[in-house]
Design a protein around this nucleic acid. Sequence first.
DNA 1: GTGGCATGTTGATCTGGGTCAATGTCCTGG
DNA 2: CCAGGACATTGACCCAGATCAACATGCCAC
Lengths: 249, 249
Amino acid sequence: MPHDAALVATQQPCHICPIKERAVCSHCGGDELSELESMKYYRRFEAGQVVVWAGDRLDFVGSVVSGMAGLTQQLEDGRTQMVGLLLPSDFLGRPGRDVAAYTVTATSDLLLCCFRRKPFEKLLIDIPRIAGRLLEMTLDELDAARDWLLLLGRKSAREKIASLLVILARREAALIKRRPEGRIAIELPLTREAMADYLGLTLETVSRQMSALKREGVIELDGKRRVIVPSFQRLVLESGDDSDGGPLS
Amino acid sequence: MPHDAALVATQQPCHICPIKERAVCSHCGGDELSELESMKYYRRFEAGQVVVWAGDRLDFVGSVVSGMAGLTQQLEDGRTQMVGLLLPSDFLGRPGRDVAAYTVTATSDLLLCCFRRKPFEKLLIDIPRIAGRLLEMTLDELDAARDWLLLLGRKSAREKIASLLVILARREAALIKRRPEGRIAIELPLTREAMADYLGLTLETVSRQMSALKREGVIELDGKRRVIVPSFQRLVLESGDDSDGGPLS
DNA sequence: GTGGCATGTTGATCTGGGTCAATGTCCTGG
DNA sequence: CCAGGACATTGACCCAGATCAACATGCCAC
């Protein structure tokens, strides 16, 4: 299943980068940005390709520019749980750690903006803005993980599905600094199996609940990988928590 | 249920602090440490007391010196999930955020070493060692949250209980830089209900599984809140994952 | 002591989601 | 155009853990 090697892609200048407002580099100005620009390189992965296996050496860190990847953990008997979902602007890899703790798989075609790990660790010391932004992002990720704990521990299958759709809609909207409402479309670059691994369900249950939500008019399907939501409010209601999604940070 | 006010406790000097090797302050030396020492103050909470409610203003941050606290999240209909377990040396509060995102409850008598939030945020800028250590701790917490996702998403009730005991044993041992093995005792400063909230189960299921593990000799109970484990290896086996618990960091 | 309350255990029953299995729907390559 | 494989849907049945309920234990206040 895993393809051969990652492809190197043509580089884009930072000032037209779609994630420049939210990635690790987002607090950097002129000089710092040109230093980063001189160090960065792109890597591309096809949907389904494995970026790293848990336990393998990982000598780079990077940001998701476009596409989506899942971090995945397994019990010896094969039970699989997704433990991280990397969307555009999210950070991959852990400074100070040379071995990947989780298997990373591209769930859709994926473009990464990478730095070799060692030089990046030096930047963390030299440029406090980067370390500061990374701390902020890590704290955000921890908050997201905690919402996810609530989802896995206490929500019903239907609420889980609705919650996932809400999360994807919010993340998609945040990139263009908007807040989802009314009738919206959600890109769903995940197989039913990947959704099941994210939600702690089986793929059959995911399929059944998707059908049920469709039958009841909460969602419409446009192909398998695109969902139309007639009323975002209704979807949020189905997700169990009525929080408004917090500030537009 | 929540008691009146938090008690201020007599302060201990940093050099005899039981968590000095692992807390946010652990990378600090002479001058930095005396600066911290001049700013710190202790707060004590009794078992069951609420430290902050989600949504309330929180003007301090701090480290758990002794005892244990749970971070808790709720759906409107009352379903509750613990989303963080604060053990000695763990950090409470988020720099840059003035409102608590989660309800924090002392699950046993709790001693906190606190700093007012604003001055602490200044320290994060002035003393990079502190920011660095906080990043490291946050990354560790994120890893722990990810193991917890696997637990909630994919483990059976019995594996969940065993996993919780393993986690507590490892954390207790780490404080004195040891690794648990053979016959050990585990302090369990949690009610069955708190355990259930941690594990995404009902308290009845927790009770039943504890009884089952006892019946089969995996654990012995010494009162309700102390567990004797005849063979730590056996317990790890029951927990589902056979990882060795990683390096003694 | 004894009454009352929090906490914990155990039993009987129910059910949401898992498991196993068949079938459907695209794609893609020849 | 058709064959084959990945992905998805649907049905029938089952079981781990939830729910509802009774009872046990310990502890403090009086």
